[in-house]
Structures are given as C-alpha cells and as structure tokens.
Computed example of a mutant assay.
Amino acid sequence: MRRGTLTPYLLITPAMLLLLAFGVLPILVAALVSLTDMNISGLANWSNVEFIGFENYVALANDPDFWRALGNTALFGVIGVPSIVFLSLAVALLLDRSDGRIARALRSFYFVPAVTGIVAISLVWGYLYNTQFGLFNWVLSWFGIGQVQWLSDPWLAKFSVALVAIWRGTGLNIIIFLAALQGVPREYREAAALDGAGEWRTTRSIVLPLLGFAIFFVTVTTTIAWLQFFDEPFVLTDGGPLGATTSVSVFLYKEGFRLNQFGYASAGSLVLFVIIATITLVQLRIRRRDEKP
C-alpha cells in the first residue's frame, strides 16, 4: 500500500481511538453490566456480581416509575424540540436582517445562556419561580392573581422546567442558524425583490429551503438533547413533585447512584440508547427521502 494511501488513515486514527474508548466501549460495558445484578459491592469485588440474563429488562418493562419517566421525557421532547427550533430560527432571521452594534450585542445576549453554568441558571430561575418571593408571582399579583405553584404543582412543574431548558437551549441554535444564513446568496434575495416578492414570500420560498440542512441538523441534535434531558429537572426539582419531572436520565441516575442498582440502571441506559438511535435513524431516513428528486 502506498504511503499516500496510508496517510488519511493515520490522521484519523487518534479520533477513532477516542471514539472507541469513550463512545463504543462504554456502550459495550453497559450492555454487559445490564445482564448482571451489579451494585456498589460489585465494584470492589467482581465475585459478588451474578449473571442474571435479561431480568433487569423484564423488571424495567414492569416498572411503573420507568414508564412514567419515559412518558415525561416524551412530553418534554414534544414541548421542547419544536419550541427551540421555531424560536431559534425566528430570532436568527430577525437578527440576520439587522446590523450594527445593537444587533451584535443581541447576538451575544442570546448566546449567554448556552455558556452559563446550569447550577447558576437554575438558582436564578428558582428564585424567579419562588412561590412567596419570586418575581413571576410578584408581577402576577399586580393583576390580582394569587400565588402560582410553579414547581410544586405536578403539571405546571413540567412546563416550568421545560421553559428553563428552552431558554437555555435556544442561544446555541441561533448561532447555528445565523451561520447558515450567511451562506444564503444575497443575489437570490435581490432577484426576488426585483420580481416584487415581499419579505415573507422571500423567506418562505427562498431562504427556508436553503436552510433545510441546518434545520435538519438542529432538529436532530435538539431531539437527542431532550431525550437525554437531565440538568434542569435534576437541579430545579430533583424529579419532583411526585415524579412529575423525572426524565429517563434522572430516573437512571437515581437508580444507579442513589440506589446502587448499576445493573438495573445500565439496562435502562441501553433502552434509552436504542430509543435515541431509532428516532435518529428515522429522521435520517426522512431526510434522505426528501432529498430524492
């Protein structure tokens, strides 16, 4: 084999090794652990670990807490994915049409939540949601509305937690859409304007079709992020009240690191991995079908 032929493989070898070490290997280990009854004692002495086959998966199928967490995750995804894609695209379109210092300042302003620590964000939002002293209830009191249990009411807590995640996740996607908008030739817009097309018609008929891949990319990555939804419900409510905001990731964390059921948690993580992979493959298939003439 020629030296020039080997060069590309040598260049990608470090990346492939990292992928195997931190991507593929953990999945294989989790699959192995999911077939055992491993707990914290098994970490110190593997002789305490017993192979139990698919009992963990059977237990998951019969666990109402797992199904509730799965339902919560699905609801979070239905709320969060369309909201983030729509809001980030709308804001990016508005910022793309503006210029100057104010526009540049707004771009930085919208990106701040993406680089701010989740603990700091949750503390601030926790004060805003505070039933007695929070800003939201203080404003509502002007209109004669009583105290709202933002994080104590089971149904309202779902939307309150989702709102924080939507606010935090929009900034990064705005930057992605702005970068994609830079690739839209200005000549197309100028030609549409000469033909008498308005701003909305130009955006709908020219700009949005050219942003197809960016919209697809944001949709896929946002879907994966919401299926792994963990930070906001864990820090704001710890999965409460009454498990109303317990996502699958929070459920797995509690089973694995609080109840020390590593085998059971690993089985749940494999189920979540299969769900994410399946949804992503479906999205890729739809994308390929739409690209065909």
Rank of each mutant, 00 (worst) to 15 (best):
Arg2Phe: 06
Arg2Ser: 14
Leu11Phe: 15
Leu18Ile: 15
Leu20Arg: 10
Ala21Gln: 10
Phe22Ala: 03
Gly23Glu: 13
Leu25Trp: 15
Ile27Gln: 11
Leu28Arg: 09
Leu28Ser: 06
Ala31Phe: 13
Ala31Leu: 14
Val33Asp: 06
Ser34Ile: 04
Leu35Phe: 13
Ile40Pro: 00
Ser41Cys: 01
Ser41Asp: 14
Gly42Phe: 04
Ala44Phe: 13
Trp46Lys: 11
Asn48Phe: 08
Glu50His: 14
Ile52Arg: 04
Pro64Trp: 01
Thr73Val: 06
Thr73Ala: 01
Leu75His: 03
Val78Cys: 06
Pro82Ile: 13
Ser83His: 05
Val85Thr: 03
Ser88Cys: 05
Leu89Val: 06
Leu89Pro: 04
Ala90Met: 14
Ala92Trp: 04
Gly100Val: 10
Ala103Arg: 15
Pro113Asp: 07
Val115Trp: 06
Val119Leu: 14
Ala120Asp: 02
Ala120Phe: 02
Ser122Ile: 07
Trp125Leu: 05
Tyr127Ala: 14
Gln132Val: 10
Phe133Val: 12
Phe136Asn: 03
Phe136Arg: 01
Asn137Pro: 13
Leu140Pro: 02
Ser141Lys: 12
Trp142Asn: 10
Gln149Gly: 06
Trp150Cys: 00
Pro154Ala: 05
Ala157Thr: 03
Lys158Pro: 06
Ser160Leu: 03
Ser160Gly: 09
Leu163Ser: 15
Ala165Leu: 04
Trp167Phe: 10
Arg168Leu: 04
Thr170Gln: 02
Ile174Glu: 01
Ile175Tyr: 02
Leu178Cys: 12
Leu178Asp: 09
Ala180Asn: 02
Ala180Pro: 00
Ala180Cys: 09
Glu187Lys: 11
Ala192Thr: 04
Ala197Lys: 12
Trp200Tyr: 12
Arg201Gly: 05
Arg204Ser: 11
Ile206Trp: 00
Leu211Tyr: 09
Phe213Asn: 11
Phe216Gln: 08
Phe217Val: 10
Val220Ile: 14
Thr221Trp: 02
Trp226Asn: 10
Leu227Asn: 07
Gln228Thr: 10
Phe230Arg: 01
Asp231Gly: 07
Pro233Asn: 03
Val235Met: 11
Val235Glu: 07
Gly240Gln: 09
Leu242Arg: 09
Gly243Ile: 02
Gly243Gln: 08
Ala244Trp: 00
Thr245His: 01
Thr245Arg: 05
Lys254His: 07
Gly256Met: 04
Arg258Lys: 12
Leu259Val: 04
Gly263Cys: 04
Ala265Pro: 06
Ser266Asn: 07
Val274Glu: 11
Ala277Gln: 07
Thr280Cys: 12
Leu281Asp: 01
Val282Asp: 09
Ile286Glu: 10
Arg288Thr: 12
Arg289Cys: 03
Pro293Glu: 13
